[in-house]
Amino acid sequence: MLPSFAYVRPTTLKAAVAALAAPGTRAHAGGTDLLGCLRDRVFPADTLVSLAGLPELVGVTPTAEGGLRLGAMTTVATVAGHPDIAARYRALAEAAAAVASPQLRNQGTLGGNLCQRPRCWYFRGDFHCARKGGGKCFAVDGENRYHCVFGGETCFIVHPSDTAPALVALDALVRLAGAGGSRVVPLEKFFVPPSADFTRETVLEPGEVLTEVVVPAPPAGARSTYRKVRARGAWDFALAGAAVSLGIEGGRVKHARVVLSGAAPIPWRVPAAEQALIGHRLDGATIARAADAAVAGAEPLADNAYKVPLLRCAVEEALTALNS
């Protein structure tokens, strides 16, 4: 049985934002992560604010600038199966299709996938770890085979989302609604690394709701893909992965985004790998250089050095797939 909580389902965004400003409240989107966290007592909630009464947060629509607007309450399954997304933002469609299981994709939302809490077993378990306000990260000296190889500082989680690295690679923006109106933030800046603040994963303030994701029009000659490495064929979080988005004109790479998943506490963009691509033909030598650059500087813990070659290969495979 879940711990007791009150429940409210506002029918306007204004009312939802007002309700979420109160302490002890949590937004309920698909609920697939939230209810698990409540059941495991990862964090408490006095009141759940359901976003199910806000149909304006559901759906995929074109923007005037040639991009797409994806409502935060759009299910992951809808994103995975949407023909416009598959045609123009392939990395996102592939990432959404690789999320969890069919049931969870039918229920989980895009906004929830971006805002889900870390899967670290110390964070989820009965440990008063750094992220929960305790003094230390137990993963540093503990069981750390699924922890990060980049960006670990004070806390060594990996970001669990597949759609997040794909959307960062596609230069997505997110809209956050609050009491005073809304603000738009590049998705890359939405995630907070432990070096900036290890007690939070996103810039969302209390009383703010992620309402939509906007992917801009793809660059000229755009192609993108997402590679996910799992311990089994389906239904698992990424051990390692790579989202790559390229713009190729006249046979040369003009635009490049390389973002690693399963690698760092946030979707891990690697500018060095992007620089290794830009201006070059996408041949085997360039791909190998970019893949090497993608994992240069990795700092594995005692049990997760295996991730470094996995990440390198994920980048190499993704780039090779885009070369055809």
Partner: peptide, 27 residues
């Protein structure tokens, strides 16, 4: 499992499979 991992609780909601253990009755 009652945590959305095993699927024993699968039902259709509006014709689509979902986990009843991770769906609030109110939802």
């Amino acid at each position: 499992c009652e945590r959305g991992e095993c699927g024993a609780c699968t039902v259709l909601i509006d014709g689509v499979p979902r986990y009843a253990c991770l769906t609030l009755a109110l939802e």
